[in-house]
Each structure stands twice: as structure tokens, then as C-alpha cells.
């Protein structure tokens, strides 16, 4: 088998006394769409940020396309980062820039493309996510949540990255808009042939965009399998999560207080 696109082995990350990731093992193959499910605050975003180097893992190995990234220097890391695109949980659009410059940012700043050329591509990407060119001149603050997510998606795919991370792409959207975003993700990823790692606690979204699903609980991956296997995983944590039951082995923090 070829080298996996992303490979995490024994990754730990804590903040002070608080342990968040406690030995994550995860492999994502080339061209695969992996979805991580898990409750709020279990460290899903922290895991993505460790892979991107936005947070430094305390322990463990993270390989991207076979290269160890945890010990990399600044310029190598920049090289690796240029392979990634990311859609952030809250879209994280730059509110000092108009929409089109948000989408074109990676092309202009990262790849040194001229503004004129980048503008063309930005409008094309906006069209790709179902937004008209006039949206390009608006400020991000003028957009609804669903539109911001679409712009965030356009920005994530603008540089045609090999790997795309989606952090809760449908959270906070109504079910119809959520499905629109899911469709766009599936289409855009198919266009690019990208490897994706997505995070969600929305099972409808997970079923739609995943090839494989893994569940994060208490800082570890407790189950992993193909999308179709999730309904008969035989894992009571997974069962409780996908059916959204309050009763079960997963005790919410609130109940313990």
C-alpha cells in the first residue's frame, strides 16, 4: 500500500493539567474522505491544529505524505502548509478584506499571484460555491452564516490544495443549508481529488461526506471503520452518539457536576 497522506501515531496534547489528546492513532489514505465524530470539547479541533502545526503536540508522531512534521523547521513547514486548505468552524473570514480578497488571499499572499489574475479565480471559486460575483465586493460581516461558510469553502479550495480540513462545516446552519454545504464539499473534493479530514457531530453530514468514520472520545480514537459499518459497529459509545441518546456509557460533563 502507498504512503498514507496523514498518519498520526500516539499524539498527545494537553493544556496545563488538562489532557485533551491522549494517544491519537489515525491514518488517512490518499484521496480518502475521513470524518471524525465526537462530542463538543473532546479535542477534535485541537487535533486538526496539531496536524497543521498551529498547536504543538506534546508527544507522538504526525506524518504528512510520509514526512514527519512535528520536528520540521519553518521553511519546510511552510512548504507542507501550502498543500493544505482549511474551512474553519466559524469560517474565520478576514473582516478587514472584501469577500473576493478573502478567497484570493492564498493565491496573492501564498503563491504571489497578481491581484488581477487572483480576482478572476476568486470569482470563479465563488461561482463554484453558488455565489454571484457581486458578493465578491461585500464585506464578510454583511453575509449570513451560510454564505460565510460558502466563502470559507471557496477560500479553502482556491489554491487547489491536496488536503482539505473541514471543521464542523454544517454546525449552526439550518438543515437545508447544511445539506447544500455537504453537497458542495462532496463536489469540490471530487473536482480536486483531494484528501479530506472533516470534523462534525452532525451524523447526516458525516454519512454524506465520509468514506470512513472515526470516533474520538476521551482523547483517543475509540472506533474506526467504513461509513456503512457505523450502524452495526458493536460499539456502545458509537451507538449512543449516532442515536443522540442521553443515556449510555458517555456521560456528559454537565451530569457529573
Amino acid at each position: 500500500m502507498s504512503v498514507p497522506m496523514i498518519e498520526l501515531t500516539g499524539v498527545h496534547k494537553g493544556f496545563g493539567p488538562k489532557k485533551v489528546l491522549q494517544g491519537i492513532d489515525l491514518t488517512v489514505q490518499h484521496g480518502e474522505s475521513m470524518v471524525i465524530i465526537g462530542g463538543s470539547g473532546t479535542g477534535k479541533s485541537v487535533m486538526l491544529k496539531c496536524i497543521l502545526g498551529l498547536l504543538k503536540a506534546d508527544k507522538g508522531s504526525i506524518k504528512v505524505n510520509g514526512e514527519e512534521v512535528t520536528t520540521m523547521g519553518r521553511s519546510d513547514r511552510k512548504q507542507v502548509l501550502s498543500k493544505f486548505g482549511m474551512l474553519f468552524q466559524g469560517a474565520a473570514l478576514f473582516d478587514s478584506l472584501p469577500v473576493w480578497e478573502n478567497v484570493a488571499f492564498g493565491l496573492i499572499q501564498g503563491k504571489g499571484m497578481s491581484k488581477k489574475e487572483a480576482h478572476e479565480i476568486a470569482l470563479e471559486k465563488l461561482r463554484r460555491v453558488g455565489l454571484t460575483p457581486d458578493v465578491g465586493d461585500l464585506s464578510p460581516a454583511e453575509l449570513s452564516g451560510g454564505m460565510q461558510k460558502r466563502v470559507g469553502l471557496a477560500r479553502a479550495i482556491a489554491t487547489e490544495p491536496e488536503i482539505i480540513f473541514f471543521d464542523e462545516p454544517t454546525t449552526g446552519l439550518d438543515p437545508i443549508m447544511a445539506d447544500v454545504i455537504n453537497d458542495l464539499i462532496v463536489e469540490c473534493v471530487k473536482d480536486l481529488g483531494a484528501t479530506t479530514l472533516s470534523i462534525t457531530h452532525d451524523m447526516a453530514s458525516a454519512r454524506k461526506i465520509a468514506d470512513r468514520i472515526a470516533m474520538l472520545y476521551h482523547g483517543e480514537i475509540i472506533w474506526e471503520g467504513a461509513k456503512d459499518e457505523i450502524d452495526h459497529s458493536g460499539n456502545e459509545y458509537v451507538d449512543q452518539f449516532i442515536h443522540g441518546r442521553a443515556q449510555g456509557p458517555i456521560q456528559m460533563e454537565v451530569l457529573k457536576l
Binding site: 497543521l52 501550502s82 473570514l93
Partner: peptide
């Protein structure tokens, strides 16, 4: 605000150094 809304993280993922930019 840019930090807590992840805009600074977004800069990094777009190959831009926040210190420089």
C-alpha cells in the same frame, strides 16, 4: 478578535506568517 475567531490560524493555513503580515 482575530485570534479568538481563528482568523490568525486561517492566515497561517494560507501560507502567510502573522508576524510578518
Amino acid at each position: 478578535t482575530m485570534r479568538v475567531t481563528e482568523q490568525i490560524d486561517a492566515l497561517v493555513t494560507l501560507s502567510t506568517d502573522p508576524f510578518k503580515y
